[in-house]
């Protein structure tokens, strides 16, 4: 399956990014093989609606799960409509989060944090 992880950098050794909508990068990884690609989050610098746009991107990338820190209310609506399962990642590398995910050690989340939570 394809999963998306918010990342602070372009490598899977980089740390997980806790913000969703304004994460700089998304890493889209295939759990079947260890292939992955990096995409720039175009929404990161938007004045508003970053979570909505970022959610749309994850869905367009055909990911079925997302590992991130916190998800705001608008992004939550978009991701839920796209049937994306959301997991709260740990403050470790993207790579380590993928392996935690495979071991089913990440907690699934379905509640949003407040708007602009990651900006505070």
């Amino acid at each position: 399956m394809k999963i998306a992880i918010t990342s602070t950098g372009k490598e899977i050794t980089d740390l997980l990014e806790k913000k969703f909508g304004r994460a700089e990068f998304f890493i889209i990884a295939d759990t079947e093989n260890s292939e992955y690609k990096v995409i720039d989050n175009k929404a990161a610098m938007e004045a508003g609606g970053a979570g909505i746009q970022a959610g749309q991107t994850i869905i367009e990338e055909k990911a079925t799960a997302l590992i991130t820190g916190n998800v705001g209310p608008n992004a939550m609506k978009v991701l839920t409509s796209g049937n994306i399962a959301i997991y709260r990642g740990e403050s470790v590398s993207v790579e380590a989060n993928i392996s935690l995910f495979k071991q089913k050690k990440l907690q699934q989340i379905n509640t949003a944090v407040a708007s602009h939570f990651g900006m505070k």
Partner: peptide, 16 residues
């Protein structure tokens, strides 16, 4: 960014 289209269904975020 007030509109998302998911699985051909439009979602509108009024307050944005």
């Amino acid at each position: 960014n007030a509109i998302a289209v998911i699985n051909k269904k439009v979602m509108i975020f009024d307050n944005i």
